[in-house]
């Protein structure tokens, strides 16, 4: 197992290297980071533009730019944004935000989705199955924007008004916290409990949105997996032993369905590190999705490269985790 992991990590290095080249080619073709500066009227002094080109390395050939970026990146220096902010600070902050949002929502989605999927499969063609399957399909096909806007209107604006907290809303629609929550004039807000409450009041809607749109996928997937395993011969064998139905479903059918479900979940997780772009945008969480959108709209090469890098690492890492989990869950797979 250990040698497998080491080997996989070693294989990942050239993979990352390749990914960084692809990302770099994409990035340098995204556009001119100084386009805004160049199209100003009256023109930005040519000397200033020359200075910025020099600072950003835009006057250098792509290979030289790449090598210089890579050399620094290997040493953990991802450079500065076009607004001269340290890129790694921004990305690591965003990573934290995304994790806070995605982790909780993903755990909930998986728990709810898998539970519903399993029950649906066990009670195939029951009213529960029909309701859950139809509901999951509906939610699965709903656009995030629609879900988000609806929740904002109903669960925030209307609900806050209804409970008489229109001025001091209980449920928040934007950001991961109130920006002026803990100020010198409100020292009572500067503790762990108020901070947590504030966080929860902000996290509710985006979490709910993510759960609503993603649990359905897990429900459908685990229902399908369960239906497959429930019809497997070994489940029939288990029943023939006189085991309780509960044991048959959980220990035999679900345990086997779990292998594929877990793999899908861990691969999903890797992709989510890149950011829940739409949800983050709608609810103004400054996570990885926002970093991506911002770096593209602002044509910020270093920021975009760092995003690519972190996302690539996450995808590769979670692929590895998926493999390890699969091997852990399925004794037929041997990792060495």
């Amino acid at each position: 197992m250990l040698s497998f992991i080491i080997r996989r990590i070693l294989v990942s290095i050239p993979l990352l290297f390749l990914a960084s080249i692809v990302a770099f080619i994409l990035v340098i073709n995204t556009g001119d980071p100084l386009e805004d500066l160049r199209t100003k009227q009256p023109p930005t002094p040519a000397a200033t533009i020359a200075l910025r080109e020099h600072q950003l390395g835009l006057d250098k050939p792509p290979v030289e730019r790449y090598v210089s970026w890579l050399t620094k990146a290997i040493h953990g220096d991802f450079g500065k944004t076009i607004k001269n902010q340290p890129v790694w600070d921004e990305v690591s902050r965003a990573l934290g935000v995304t994790l806070r949002l995605v982790l909780f929502a993903e755990i909930l989605s998986v728990l709810i989705g898998v539970t519903i999927g399993v029950i649906s499969a066990v009670k195939q063609y029951s009213w529960f199955d029909y309701t859950a399957t139809t509901g999951a399909f509906l939610l699965y096909s709903l656009p995030v924007l629609a879900v988000g806007s609806f929740l904002k209107y109903v669960l925030a604006i209307r609900l806050n008004r209804w409970i008489g907290r229109a001025d001091d809303p209980l449920i928040k629609t934007i950001g991961e916290g109130t920006p002026n929550f803990c100020t010198p004039s409100k020292p009572y807000n500067c503790g762990f409990i108020p901070a947590t409450t504030d966080f929860l009041s902000h996290a509710l809607l985006p979490t709910l949105t993510l759960v609503l749109i993603s649990f359905a996928g897990y429900a459908r997937f685990s229902r399908a997996s369960m239906l497959e395993t429930l019809n497997a011969d070994y489940v029939r064998t288990a029943r023939s032993k006189g085991l309780s139905e509960r044991r048959v479903i959980l220990k035999h059918a679900f345990r086997n369905a779990l292998m594929t479900v877990v793999t899908v979940i861990s691969l999903d997780f890797g992709a989510l590190i890149g950011g829940a772009i739409l949800t983050e945008t709608i609810f103004e969480w400054h996570g990885m999705g926002r970093v991506l959108v911002e770096s593209i709209t602002k044509i910020d090469p270093n920021l975009l490269l760092c995003w690519f890098f972190v996302t690539a690492v996450a995808v590769i890492a979670f692929n590895l985790i998926a493999d390890i989990l699969y091997a852990f869950l399925d004794p037929r797979i041997r990792l060495d």
Binding site: D233, Y234, S240, K241, G242, L243, H252, M259, D330
Partner: peptide, 22 residues
Amino acid sequence: RAIRGKKIAMVFQDPMTAMNPV
């Protein structure tokens, strides 16, 4: 359930799939 597997037991056709692989 008390009879199944205890009084009346069964051997299935395909031993490849009839045992739980995990």
